[in-house]
C-alpha cells in the first residue's frame, strides 16, 4: 500500500531564480541544496507546514536525463504555461494573495469563489502555474 509522497519535482529553467521565488517569495524552507557539478544543484524545498514533503526544483538542462531536443521542447512548454504543477492551500487566501502580490508574484486568476472554497492561480518564475486555495471549513 502506498502511504505518502516524500519527493516530487517541479521542472524549472533557472535554479537561482527558482530559489528566490520559492524561498524568498513563497516562504518555503530549503531542505537540501547540494552542488552536483557543472552549475547544477540538487535543490529541494518544503512547504512551511509540510517539512516531510521535499519539492525538487529540477533544472531542465542538457545532460544524461534530457537531450538537447527535449530541453528545447520542455523549455518552450514550461515558458508558455503548459504545466499546472500543484495545488497549494492556505488559511486565508485574501491575506496570502495580498502578501504574494506585494512581493511581485504574478496571478493569472485573482481569488474567486468556487464550490470548494476560494481559489487563485499564480505562476512561478519559469512559467509553471499553481492553484492556491482556501478550502471551505
Amino acid at each position: 500500500m502506498i502511504t505518502k509522497i516524500t519527493h516530487t519535482c517541479i521542472y524549472v529553467l533557472n535554479q537561482k531564480s527558482a530559489y528566490d521565488f520559492y524561498v524568498n517569495k513563497l516562504g518555503f524552507h530549503v531542505h537540501t541544496d547540494a552542488p552536483m557539478g557543472e552549475g547544477v544543484r540538487w535543490l529541494t524545498v518544503t512547504p512551511p507546514e509540510q517539512p516531510e514533503l521535499e519539492i525538487t526544483l529540477f533544472l531542465v538542462a542538457e545532460g544524461q536525463m534530457f537531450d538537447k531536443e527535449t530541453v528545447q521542447t520542455m523549455t518552450s512548454l514550461i515558458r508558455k504555461g503548459t504545466f499546472g504543477a500543484a495545488v497549494f492551500t492556505c488559511k486565508n487566501l485574501a491575506a496570502t494573495y495580498e502578501e504574494l502580490t506585494a512581493k511581485g508574484v504574478v496571478f493569472k486568476k485573482p481569488p474567486t469563489k468556487e464550490f470548494y472554497g476560494y481559489e487563485a492561480l499564480f505562476v512561478d518564475d519559469s512559467g509553471n502555474w499553481f492553484s492556491l486555495t482556501e478550502v471551505n471549513e
Partner: peptide
C-alpha cells in the same frame, strides 16, 4: 556532509538518471 557527499541526499533513481 552535503558538500562532501551530496549523493547521500539524492534519491538513487534521480541520481542514476542524471548520471550522478
Amino acid at each position: 556532509k552535503m558538500l562532501q557527499n551530496p549523493l547521500l541526499f539524492v534519491p538513487n533513481c534521480f541520481a542514476e538518471n542524471q548520471g550522478w
